[in-house]
Write a protein that binds this DNA or RNA. Structure first.
Ligand SMILES: [Mn+2]
Ligand SMILES: [Mn+2]
Ligand SMILES: [Zn+2]
Ligand SMILES: [Zn+2]
Lengths: 140, 140
DNA sequence: ACTTGGCCTAGACAGAGTCTAAGTGTTCGG
DNA sequence: CCGAACACTTAGACTCTGTCTAGGCCAAGT
């Protein structure tokens, strides 16, 4: 299962209670061709590179919808923009602050201890682990 | 050593190769009264609540300067704004996505495994661990 | 046909953060 | 002292990501 067929994507969306529309399909096709980390702006550019298919508002709305329904995961590492991760299984990230590149870390490569006691009246939603790196031989 | 005296702060700044100016002192006084996580906007409001002492540009410039010199640490958990942490010793964070509140986690409360192999040509700069929580009894 | 409801869209808008160009000290050489 | 050099500060314009608004479109149901 590499580049998923349109039918697979429609089924995936139905599984997650998302009505499949033409625009959502265009966006999903781009996201789910491979594991990747894309900003909304990148998705907007990619989806419209041949012809204008999807508006800016719909790209933002759709990515947020996908995130809420668990189809993609938001990754917040850059104060300037959100990345959307097409891989939703638990994993962590390297973030190269020089290049802006995200790289996945398998959980087994970096075990993290159990959750500490949560603050009163809260429940856990997820753990983000980000290892910030910079490109070597920096004139620091 | 609670509310640090002006002289302590000047020495701290000199130690970090920061020329102490009136505006930088105003900002430092607010930051270092206690361990806390403040956005630039909050610092701007606090520093000017009595009389207009420091401009917006200087607040942003100063916080970035302090971060570069290691006086404060940037915490990136919210796509809308950066938090500045007056505690620079290693620790992790809870982030309540409902209230926007950051809470510290001591490293000993949540041991994290050794660093995995870094991507080619990079060196580590730091590890961020964020446990996202939401306030209980949510109508999800 | 008409209504309803979900979806899409252009473009206005909001808010965090940056930049620019001018002003204000402060230091330092003569 | 005096003037040049330099670092710092500032108002306000500007940029950029993301949100909102108000109307248009379309498919389904009656
Ligand atoms: Mn799923
Ligand atoms: Mn230090
Ligand atoms: Zn990832
Ligand atoms: Zn902290």
């Amino acid at each position: 299962m590499h580049v998923p067929a349109e039918n697979d994507i429609i089924e995936l969306m139905r599984d997650h209670e998302i009505t499949p529309t033409q625009q959502r399909l265009e966006i999903a096709q781009i996201l789910f061709t491979k594991p990747q980390h894309l900003s909304a702006d990148q998705v907007l550019a990619m989806v419209n590179q041949d012809s204008a298919l999807v508006s800016k508002a719909t790209v933002y709305n759709t990515l947020k919808l996908f995130a809420n329904k668990g189809l993609v995961k938001e990754v917040i590492v850059d104060p300037a923009k959100v990345f959307y991760d097409s891989t939703t299984t638990p994993h962590y990230h390297f973030y190269n602050v020089d290049t802006g590149t995200l790289t996945d870390i398998e959980v087994r490569e970096m075990p993290v201890g159990n959750l500490p006691d949560l603050p009163e009246g809260t429940e856990a939603e997820g753990i983000d682990v980000i290892i910030r790196v910079r490109s070597s031989s920096h004139t620091t």
